[in-house]
């Protein structure tokens, strides 16, 4: 019995030591679902010996909530969208990358090197960028789809067959474009009109769902789906006869960014991973998988040639402008929250 105890204690000590050794070669990533190909992580591990653990989330807001509710100090890197980078910076959740810490920082494409949401790229690097609009099943409807009316005031054929993203930011931004009002409007009449318009549009919607935005189009559960461009392309490749729209009123543009979190337990490894993702070949592998766009120069050679020709990547001549989601102040946001609750009550 005594021997057994000693043996198990020794085993325990050994395994603790083994864990400690492994901890030196670790990286903990907090990332969107279905957004990182395993091959890229495997390649990173093969090159550096660093083991990558990845947890996933389905919205910028739930990521923020997890980090604020005690997730800080657990994760090294997260991948927030544009507006969320400024929110996280404002909340003090981001660490600053000093000059020279990233060897490949110069690879960032010039147009993405100094974005408004992270001036000078103090804490982030580009991951992917693209657009959010909607896709329409062409078997269900053959008319003009280049208008936001498809979502908010649809023709009879499409009424009751629309899936919206379950995301306040994206729905509100699209609704503002539809009404032609600013995103963080403080004008009472505009806000009342926005509230009334959404209340009226809801009768045409079948569901709110983000994680299955693609599946409902492929399965035919929805004939119209608010969706990201890369997801629309995937739905099309999976056999759905869908066309991605670039409405004349405009559409939502976005960029996801890899950010260095404050109190990152493996800060050096996180920087290595950022450098790794700034290598054109590696980020191109992500783009080939996710089917969006990289913000790194020199990726063109590594991209799947079919990607550039995709209809989802090429807005037509009459398309409106792509706009980023704006960050409202607390007072204005309270009204938008109220409108959102009214919509889903």
């Amino acid at each position: 019995m005594k021997n057994l105890l000693i043996a198990s204690a020794a085993t325990l000590a050994l395994s603790v030591a083994a864990n400690a050794a492994a901890a030196e070669g670790k990286l903990v990533l907090y990332h969107w679902f279905e957004y990182m190909p395993q091959e890229v992580l495997d390649k990173f591990t093969a090159e550096t010996g660093i083991e990558v653990t990845m947890d996933t989330y389905d919205s910028n807001e739930s990521m923020l909530a997890t980090l604020k509710a005690g997730g800080m100090g657990t994760y090294d890197l997260a991948v927030p969208g544009d507006y969320m980078v400024s929110i996280m910076a404002g909340e003090g959740l981001l660490d600053t990358i000093a000059d020279g810490e990233l060897a490949n920082k110069g690879n960032i494409a010039p147009e993405w090197a100094d974005p408004s949401f992270d001036p000078g790229r103090a804490s982030s690097i580009p991951y992917q960028w693209g657009s959010t609009s909607f896709a329409v099943n062409r078997d269900a409807y053959s008319g003009d789809i280049q208008t936001t009316d498809i979502l908010f005031n649809p023709p009879a054929e499409l009424s009751g067959k629309i899936n919206m993203l379950d995301s306040q930011g994206e729905v509100m931004a699209m609704a503002s474009l539809h009404l032609g009002i600013p995103q963080c409007s403080a004008d009472r009449e505009q806000l009342k009109a926005l509230n009334a318009m959404l209340q009226d549009a809801k009768q045409h919607w079948a569901s709110f769902n983000s994680d299955t935005a693609k599946e409902v189009l492929v399965s035919g559960d929805a004939a119209v789906g608010q969706i990201y461009d890369g997801f629309a392309a995937k739905a099309r490749e999976e056999g759905a006869n869908v066309e991605y729209a670039y409405p004349t009123q405009g559409y939502v543009a976005w960029m996801d960014n890899v950010v260095l979190l404050k109190d990152a337990p493996n800060r050096d490894n996180a920087l290595k991973f950022m450098d790794f993702l700034l290598e054109p070949e590696n980020i191109a592998a992500v783009t080939n998988y996710a089917q969006y766009n990289a913000g790194v120069t020199g990726v063109a050679d590594f991209l799947d040639p079919a990607l550039a020709a995709q209809p989802e990547k090429n807005p037509h001549a009459d398309a409106g402008d792509g706009v980023f989601i704006e960050v409202c102040d607390q007072e204005t946001q309270a009204v938008y929250d109220q409108i959102w609750t009214n919509l889903k009550k």
Partner: peptide
């Protein structure tokens, strides 16, 4: 379809949304 809140989703939204 998450079109109408139930208590559970209302509470979830307050923490995750």
């Amino acid at each position: 379809g998450a079109k109408n809140f139930m208590i559970g989703s209302l509470i979830e939204e307050q923490f995750k949304g």
